[in-house]
Structures are given as C-alpha cells and as structure tokens.
Design a protein around this nucleic acid. Sequence first.
DNA 1: TTGAAAGCGCTAACAA
DNA 2: TTGTTAGCGCTTTCAA
Lengths: 338, 338
Amino acid sequence: MNIREIAKAAGVSVATVSRVLNHPETVAENTKKKVQRIMEEEEYTPNWFARGLNFANTNTIGLVIPQLVDPVYSEIVKGVEDVATRKGYIIFLCDFANDQTLEKMYFEQLARRRIDGLIAVSTRAESKIFDTVTENNIPIVLVGGSSHDLGFSMVKVNYREAAADATRHLINIGYRKIAMICSDHTDPNSEEKLQGYRLALHEAGILFREEYLKIAEDKMETAYLAAKKLLEIEEPPEAMFVATDNMAIGVMDAVKDKDLKIPEDVAIVGFDNIQISKMVEPRLTTVDIPLHKLGVYGARLLFDLIESDVSEKQQIVLQTKMKIRKSCGHKERIGELF
Amino acid sequence: MNIREIAKAAGVSVATVSRVLNHPETVAENTKKKVQRIMEEEEYTPNWFARGLNFANTNTIGLVIPQLVDPVYSEIVKGVEDVATRKGYIIFLCDFANDQTLEKMYFEQLARRRIDGLIAVSTRAESKIFDTVTENNIPIVLVGGSSHDLGFSMVKVNYREAAADATRHLINIGYRKIAMICSDHTDPNSEEKLQGYRLALHEAGILFREEYLKIAEDKMETAYLAAKKLLEIEEPPEAMFVATDNMAIGVMDAVKDKDLKIPEDVAIVGFDNIQISKMVEPRLTTVDIPLHKLGVYGARLLFDLIESDVSEKQQIVLQTKMKIRKSCGHKERIGELF
DNA sequence: TTGAAAGCGCTAACAA
DNA sequence: TTGTTAGCGCTTTCAA
C-alpha cells in the first residue's frame, strides 16, 4: 500500500496525502479527516526509504561501544537512549568487542546508512578511523574519553584528578604503602589514572615504587592474578588502588584467598561505582563516575551539533566523587542501605 | 557525491556504475577498474535510502528489551548482536524501560523503518500490540518467554522445571521450610516459576504455605523488604528460593542485616546465574540460564525466517542447570575460581 | 559489454 | 485549499 493508492481511495492527490502526513495544518479539516481514516483502514505506513530520499535527516544515531556486557557501558548506553527516545531518534547499537577492526567497520557501515550523528564511547581509535564519518559531515561526540586527541566534542570526567582523589583518600586515612593495579591500553584512560596515582603520592612525599605497580587487562581474572603477585613480594602493600571496580572485585577475591582481611590487612579502593560495588563484602570504596549522565550529556551535545549545524567543539567535564564504604578501612560506616 | 557524478567522472553511464556496485562480474575488467578507482578517490558511498527504495530488505533488525541495565538482558543482546554482525545486519536497540506504551511505540517505529525482523525479549505485550509489525509481514521471534501465547517463534527455557529443580535441590539437602520470593508481573515468567516451586513442594509432600510466598518487584530493594518481612513471621523459613539473582542479592542483604548467617540460618537459591552471583559472599547458588545462547538462538531463528521466507513457527527450549555454590548450605564447596 | 530510460514512494515547488 | 509534476539516487529492463 503506497501513497498513490491511498490518494486514489480518498479521492485526492498524492500531494494532499503527503501534506496530511507532514503539514496537517495546511489541509482542510474534512479532507484531512477522510485521508486519515483511509490511512487508518488500510494500515498505511509511509515508506521510510522514499522519505529518507527527500529528507536530509534520518532520525537515527549510531552508538559505538567497546562492550555491552559491562555495566560501565550499559549505563552509558541507557543515558544516551533516554535522551534519544525523547527526541524521536532511534539508535544503531554497535558493540565492537574491543576489536578495532570491527570498530572501523561499524563506522563505515553507519556512515553508509546516513546516521545523523555518532557517539563513540571510550574509543581508542585514531583520527583516520573516523574518516568515513567525518567525510560525510556526520557530527561526532566522544563519551568517556579517548586515547588520542581527536578534536571532537567530548564528555568525560577528569580521570587523573579522580584517581588522585582515590589515592589521596588512602593517604589521608594513614596508608603509605599503596599499590596500584592499573588497567592496560584497552582502557583509554588508564594513563590518566596512573598519572593521578603518581601525583597523589608525589604530593604526599611518598616515593613511587615500581614493584607496587601492576598492569592488567580490565578483567576480574587478570586483576586477581596481578593482586596475588603483589601480595607475594617482599614488602607487600597495605592498600591498593584499582583502576576499575570490575578489576577490584577480582582483587578482593585474591586478598581473601590469601587469607588476608579487607580492610584490616589490605585496604582497597576501586573506580567507577558500578552497582556491584555496593553489593560485595565488604562494600567497595570507589570513585563514583556519573555513567548515566555521561550518556545523557553526550547525547545532548550530539543533538546540539545535529540541530544547530554549528560545529563548535565542546568539552564537558563531569564531577566525580568518592564513595567511602568499608573496603578502605574508614572508621565509621557511611550508611547506605545497599 | 552521487552515482551520476561518479559516472561522469569515469566517462561511463550510471548503469555501469550501478553494475560495478551490484553485479561486478558483468562489467569489463578495465571499466570496472576505472570506476572503482574513481569511487575510491571520491570516497563515494551509495545512498542508503535510494538503495532501500529498490531493494526489499534493509539488513536491519529491531531488538526490543525491557531494560538494558540488567545483566540478564545485556547478555541476551550480546548474543543477538554476535550473530547479526556476522550476517552483516545492524541492530536498532530499543529499551522500553518496562513501559508497555513505550514498547508499542517502538514496534510501530520499527515497522515504519522497514526492519527485516524483530526480536522481542521477555515481552508482556498482548497480540494486538504486535499488529503493526505483523501487518507488514515482518518476522518476529520472542526470546526468554512471554506472558501471552502469541503464536510466534520463540526461544526460551522451561522456567517451571528450572524453578522446580531449584526448589528440589533445597528439599534434597534437607530443607522443608522453604519460602519463595517471587517476581511480580513485570517478569513474564514469574507465574511459571511459582508453579515450579509449588510442584516441587507437592512432589515432596510439603504443604504450600501462603505466608511463605512473597511477591515483589524484580528489584533488590523490594526483595530486601520482602525478605525482612518473611524473617519476622512467627515461624520463619529456613530456606528461600528467589525468582531472580538480582532479587536474591537484596534478600542476602536482608538476612545479613537481621544478623542471620547464610546458609547456616537461611539457605538461599537464586535464578539466572548473572555474573554477580558468583562474586557475592557467600557465592550464590542459582539456576544457570544460558542467556547468551538465548540471544544467539533467537537471532538464528529470526534469520531463518527472514531468509527462507517460510513462516513455520518454532519453539526452542534450552537447557538450564543448577549452579551449586555456598549460599544454599551444600556441604562441599564446588570449586570455581570466581 | 554498455547506455537510455522507466520506476521505486515520497516531498515540495509551482500553478490553479 | 488542492493538484500537477519534477526530482531525490539508485536499480534494472530493454535495446544497441
């Protein structure tokens, strides 16, 4: 059923039907009613492609993420979707499974489909990976940082300061032998986090010790192993700052398996404040990253670009804050039901 | 840059360019080379909509889920995406936030966009909600059950049997005062789970006790409250079967907050085997639902429908299995690193 | 092996 | 307020 058949059935021209669809206020009440009734009866839905051929925009955005099955990213996705839906946009979701080749393929695929805008979450891609997208003048917003300076609009947090805060907290409550289990290059912000850790040590006049730094993939399993090794060195640390909550959970397991107590023997601070962090035992002290907000602001930034057609780059930095719980040995329990 | 400009630049007709794109074997080697070079140089990508106007299929599927920020659903989504990507399809992700009005809106939106197929996860929608989709002859696959019999192809597990298994396990290891904290209607399978629980009790000759059944929304918080109440009745249960791991985590908190020990005072069995369940203390005994597989099989079923154009309905039931961990009081620890 | 031209379903400029 | 019609960018039939 196409517009011509509807027009014939209603005894009007295709132009009138089109008007009912797109500018209903310009058509007489009676005609409109009649056409609408026919469309209803015939269950007519205009052809999306024919429409797209005439309109510039597709009301579609692409959302490219490293991996969906990670609460960090699914919360960001949710934030983006909340805004997009309200705007009448729909999302192409692309999980590139931490595989840069796949990521590039998605960018090309999305550009071909004429998305109105692209949000790339925690990308490690270099500038030229985005070429197909930029060539098509598709606005891009980065969310959660990137490992290169790409000159796009971006929403992120200050990972360095946040990491420094976490380390400072450990220092403030009396620790000096503080190790860091850092994520590897799969986390585009690992470098910043490491800088923050070193900064806080430096401020406090604590010497950075090579043997107190372990780099591991952002996985519970690898963090578990890294923590085990850390606990077996000559003078093991009394506290650990772990680059992601995900890893911190693995670290907690390692500590327990060594028959050490948290926080009495080893204090632990994580990063991200994913939901699980307040469910493990003991509750994990961590840095709250406003994940949902990252998504929301990212989407807003993108729609600003799409709608205004201005290509002024913006950088939004959101606030983080420490979530003090039991795993870091703070004296009082800061009460939270969960 | 459109096909006409490419044609002019290459000194051929648009038909030839189109052929290079769609039936390269029918064009002379030299012409093809030349056209391809020009396309390369000009970074030409054919207009998706113009193409869609001529082709029947869009290489796009819709995926509608109750909420993304729930590990149960994100794992299913991942399963679907793994298959879709390999097939060259891309996904419209729609999270309807447990809001049926929104769900319906998404169905309409997706039908309008001429998706090739639809996967609805754990839907509670009635038949007529799908009307726009079925009218457009778009194949539908349900994943993870539904609350109505809609006559679509479906991938699910036998929730009744799985729940019965969980309850039987508690019975087998010696419990008789077994309560159930059941999810409410937001979980389309809550009814089946309840039936399983009652079935197992019945088999063992244990009387069903109204006061041992609590219905709660599928949230940690509400499950927490339900469990608290359950522990305050005259003859509190010694074991609890909880309809989702998510809720079980809340229940565990409630038990701990009552200064009771798990599993010594109260044994707990969950449902789903989400990742967190093996990270909480004590590790949660639960029923493993093959979430990723649900997604994979759902997608395969859908592509069968899309490609074969046969509309034979299929029902696939996947196997579940008990994951015995510490929370249910089993004597030996079934070792798992995490 | 290639080109000319019709047509996919819609929108909007222009005319009435 | 409504109708006629050109055109969006592509594919494909038919003819050369």
